[in-house]
């Protein structure tokens, strides 16, 4: 049971990776727990996530809150605040 995690912009550069797969429980887990697992698996990622105080997370192309649930098969994107226009 996995999810795909994508990183964008400054976060992608700091982590040095565009995407990765992460094993999660069949019942899913909260976004905040998913971020904690990403950090626990790699100290470099933990630092990069901690250094961005305003992380945004989208699940299946929709912005979500830290308590929202991520399920197996979801696409999770983690990125800094958006600066378009």
């Amino acid at each position: 049971m996995t999810v795909t995690v994508l990183y964008f912009a400054a976060l992608r550069e700091r982590i040095g990776c565009e995407s990765q797969m992460l094993d999660i429980p069949p019942e899913g887990l909260a976004v905040s727990d998913l971020l904690a697992r990403l950090g626990a698996a790699d100290a470099h990622t933990a630092t990069a996530l901690a250094e961005e105080p305003r992380l945004r997370v989208a699940v299946n192309h929709t912005l979500c809150a830290m308590h929202d649930l991520v399920r197996p098969g979801d696409e999770v994107a983690v990125f800094p605040p958006m600066t378009g226009g």
Binding site: F8, A9, A10, P80, P81, M82, T83, G84, G85
Partner: peptide, 27 residues
């Protein structure tokens, strides 16, 4: 659009330096 759509800007300066644009509170 500026704050709600997933776009990010990276600046490039004369001399080769680069920096990601920081989100602005005003936006």
């Amino acid at each position: 659009l500026k704050t709600g759509a997933p776009f990010w800007k990276k600046e490039e300066y004369a001399g080769g330096g680069t920096a990601w644009v920081q989100a602005r509170v005003e936006d």
